[in-house]
Each structure stands twice: as C-alpha cells, then as structure tokens.
Simulated scan of single mutants.
Amino acid sequence: MQVLRAQLEIRPDPAEVGRARRWARSRLAGSGIQADEPLAENLILLVSELVTNAVVHTGCPAVLRLCLPEEVAESATVRLEVADFSTRAPVPRWVDGEATGGRGLALVDGLADRWGWSPEGVGKRIWCELDRCSGADGRSVAYAGGALPTCQGYEGYEGLAYEAV
C-alpha cells in the first residue's frame, strides 16, 4: 500500500488550530476517507487537541504531519504527528468537572488506537494512530489490534509520496 505523507508548518498562534483542521480535512478528502466516517471525525478532533497543545503549551512553531493511505482499503492506518521545539514531556492531567481545559491527552488516549511521544532533535514528537477497516455493511469501523501498515520508518517505504506545505 502506498502512503501519502503531508506536513503543515504551524505558527505559535491559536488561530492555527482552525487552519490545521481545514488542512487535515482536505488531505482526508484527497485520500478517499469520507468526512462523515468515524475515522475522519476522530482524526480532526485529534488534530485539534495536539495542535492546541503545541500552540498553548510551547509557544513555539510546530509541524503537523499526516500519513494517509493513497487509496482507501479495507484496512488502513492513519498516523498523525505534531513535532515542536519544546523538550517538555506531555503530561496527562486529571481535572475536575468545572475545569475548562486539561482534558486533551485524555481525549487522545480515548480516541486513538495507539499514541506516544519521543524526543526529536531539539524538541519532541507526539504521535497517534487510528486504524480503519470495513465492516460487513461497507461502513468503516475502528478496531484495535492486528498488523496494519503505518508511517513508522518513513525512509523504508517504497512508493512513498511526500508533500510539504
């Protein structure tokens, strides 16, 4: 399966969150993933959360990366990454019901099939993956488990297309 890797540079400005969502939606449409699929809706929410965290908590520019299947298949993995220039590790917080923030990483943990972070250069990379497969009725459903293609090890993929915006 060929994978399309796209990236968007994010300025340290809260308005960038909306731009990142619009950009991600356009990339999903180009990959054949329908806007009303649970995968697409979850991915856009994850883009919002991870880009917001990068903008609010680092005050530094960041890079949003998406790894998408070029063609919709019965099963596929979509990978989202946000790299920033802060060395501070992401720390999930537990907040009370009245707090207006602090739930972002809990949402990531609940929506993504896998997520994590790693040091990258002078900063870090936070990533998450969503799996997709077609159910018997042809609608896409998320599932956990199985060996699906991912964007890990970008350099080793044959037929990899790259787009920088």
Rank of each mutant, 00 (worst) to 15 (best):
1 M>L: 15
2 Q>R: 08
3 V>I: 15
5 R>H: 03
5 R>Y: 00
10 I>A: 06
14 P>C: 10
14 P>L: 13
15 A>H: 11
17 V>F: 05
18 G>N: 14
20 A>M: 06
22 R>D: 07
23 W>D: 02
26 S>L: 09
27 R>W: 00
27 R>A: 00
31 S>V: 09
33 I>R: 02
33 I>E: 00
34 Q>I: 14
36 D>L: 12
37 E>A: 12
38 P>V: 06
40 A>Y: 03
40 A>V: 04
41 E>A: 14
46 L>T: 03
47 V>D: 00
51 V>C: 12
51 V>L: 10
52 T>P: 01
53 N>F: 06
56 V>W: 07
64 L>G: 05
71 E>T: 14
73 A>E: 10
79 R>C: 03
80 L>N: 04
87 T>Q: 15
87 T>N: 11
89 A>L: 13
90 P>W: 07
93 R>T: 08
95 V>P: 10
96 D>R: 10
97 G>Q: 13
102 G>R: 09
102 G>C: 11
109 D>F: 02
110 G>M: 04
114 R>S: 06
114 R>G: 02
114 R>T: 00
116 G>V: 05
118 S>Y: 05
118 S>A: 15
121 G>D: 09
122 V>E: 15
123 G>I: 09
124 K>R: 15
124 K>C: 07
124 K>T: 04
125 R>T: 15
125 R>K: 15
126 I>R: 00
126 I>Y: 02
130 L>R: 00
131 D>N: 15
132 R>E: 08
133 C>K: 02
134 S>R: 15
135 G>P: 06
137 D>L: 11
137 D>H: 07
138 G>I: 14
139 R>I: 11
145 G>D: 09
147 A>R: 14
147 A>Y: 08
147 A>L: 13
147 A>Q: 11
147 A>V: 14
148 L>V: 14
150 T>L: 07
154 Y>H: 12
154 Y>V: 14
155 E>H: 12
156 G>W: 08
157 Y>E: 08
163 E>M: 04
163 E>S: 09
163 E>L: 05
164 A>D: 12
